[in-house]
């Protein structure tokens, strides 16, 4: 009987491992970031268009990742996107006139938020907003503008 107990425990472990694997595979589809929330303070920024920005997209400053997008919302009054980002506590001296833009890394790559520091002596604190923002470049719009400007010539 003792031996069959050991076997049952092993089988229980096996099934648990298998189900955990399945769970992990499934969670990757939905949202794994909820499981690995990092510490930091929240800043927000309004964009006219966020393009392909997603939760967990990186927030960079001079190319260095300083934080991640933690949630994305929609402002019902201004019809703008509101992006909340969690910035690491290490980077607590971001000037309050810093601008936030949405860039694309490479031609096919991921979209991310790039911060360009301003000259102010006051720093952004938890809950503050970026005043200067630049939306994602939408390729179709850009091509459209280009064609229109060509046609005008």
């Amino acid at each position: 009987m003792e031996q069959s107990r050991v076997i049952q425990i092993w089988v229980g472990l096996f099934v648990a491992i298998g189900l955990a694997s399945l769970f992990m595979l499934a969670m990757k589809v939905s949202n794994i970031s909820a499981l690995t929330e990092q510490d930091g303070y929240i800043l927000k920024a309004n964009f006219e268009n966020i393009g392909g920005l997603k939760i967990r997209s990186p927030v960079t400053m001079a190319g260095v990742v300083v934080g991640r997008v933690s949630s994305i919302d929609f402002d019902r009054n201004t019809y703008e996107a509101v992006v909340f980002m969690t910035i690491d506590f290490k980077f607590d001296n971001i000037p309050d006139d810093t601008s936030a833009s949405i860039f694309t890394s490479g031609l096919l790559g991921e979209q991310y938020i790039g911060l360009e520091a301003g000259g102010s002596q006051d720093y952004l604190k938890e809950g503050d907003s970026f005043t200067l923002t630049q939306s994602a470049v939408v390729l179709e719009k850009l091509i459209g503008q280009f064609l229109v400007s060509k046609a005008d010539e």
Binding site: K28, I32, P58, E110
Partner: peptide
């Protein structure tokens, strides 16, 4: 982040 977020996507 890109590794996981693109995967999720």
């Amino acid at each position: 982040g890109a590794f996981w977020s693109q995967m999720e996507d």
